[in-house]
């Protein structure tokens, strides 16, 4: 049923996904893993949170269970539930239980979106008890050393009413992600998309110009992912202005007046 569809268990990949660190996040993550501490990653959309977790899972040789949280996600979606088939009822583990049973990273993306009852499950796992009580089966699972809980959220557009409770937040080692500094972001864009340095630099200038209009004209600043997408189109032979419109401008706003004004900024950088 839906249990499997919401979780994506990635077995240890043979190839480590590319990730360019912007600070000491890799060391902190490794130390947190060694000390069995859960990690919270916060940062705007498209700044590399998910990529970082995938990279770290591969680097540490751990399986990764990714759950994208939504506002209907309940505790039983994470823990598991009884299902019915021809032979009767049976218990089916949720992604969190699977990770606790077999070891690995359970990554809850956009954790603030999930229903309130999920935090109760997370509390016992995220302090030094590291246990997962499953009241429906009467089990009490103890997390193996290979288990790690990682959650992420976006402080920018989360509902004001839905922030993480301090009692939850204070259980985690927290990493704040931002957009990389311009030179580094240029390298990332050039490396990911295969465009030349000059184009990458222009794209990053554009991104930073658009980011300074966030909150006033845009709901959220464009992330590195958008810039990489535009760069990929350009590398494939697309006209830079067309690529920026399709991959950046139209993704940022639906308001025709805003997109028209955003194109003025694009033309300031890619015009003629």
């Amino acid at each position: 049923m839906t249990v499997t569809s919401i979780a994506r268990a990635v077995r240890v990949p043979s190839l480590i996904p590319r990730y360019t660190p912007t600070g000491d996040e890799i060391e902190v993550f490794e130390l947190a893993h060694q000390n069995r501490l859960p990690v919270l990653i916060k940062g705007p959309t498209g700044c590399g949170k998910t990529r970082f977790v995938e990279h770290m899972a591969a680097r540490l040789g751990l399986a990764l269970y990714t759950v994208s949280c939504h506002d209907d996600l309940s505790a039983s979606d994470l823990v598991g539930r009884h299902l019915i088939d021809a032979s009767g009822t049976y218990w089916s583990d949720g992604p969190l239980t699977q990770a606790v049973r077999h070891g690995g990273i359970c990554y809850l993306d956009e954790v603030v979106e999930a229903r309130k009852d999920t935090t109760v499950v997370l509390h016992a796992l995220s302090d030094d008890r590291r246990i997962l009580p499953i009241d429906r089966t009467g089990e009490q699972l103890e997390a193996p050393p290979g288990f790690m809980l990682v959650v992420s959220y976006n402080p920018g557009y989360q509902h004001l009413l839905k922030g993480l409770k301090p009692s939850t937040r204070q259980r985690f080692v927290s990493l704040a992600f931002g957009f990389p500094e311009a030179g580094l972001e240029g390298e990332i864009v050039a490396g990911e998309a295969g465009v030349d340095q000059a184009t990458a630099k222009r794209l990053v200038t554009l991104a930073n110009a658009l980011r300074s209009t966030a909150d006033h004209d845009l709901e959220e600043a464009p992330g590195t992912r958008l810039i990489v997408d535009a760069a990929k189109l350009i590398a494939a032979g697309c006209d830079p202005r067309v690529a920026c419109r399709a991959a950046i401008v139209e993704c940022l706003s639906d308001d025709p007046e805003i997109t028209r004004a955003l194109m003025v900024v694009v033309l300031a950088i890619f015009g003629d």
Partner: peptide
């Protein structure tokens, strides 16, 4: 004016 205002902010002008 809207376009100019957004450009102004994009280039670092005060919101």
């Amino acid at each position: 004016s809207r376009d100019a205002a957004l450009l102004f902010r994009a280039l670092g002008g005060d919101h």
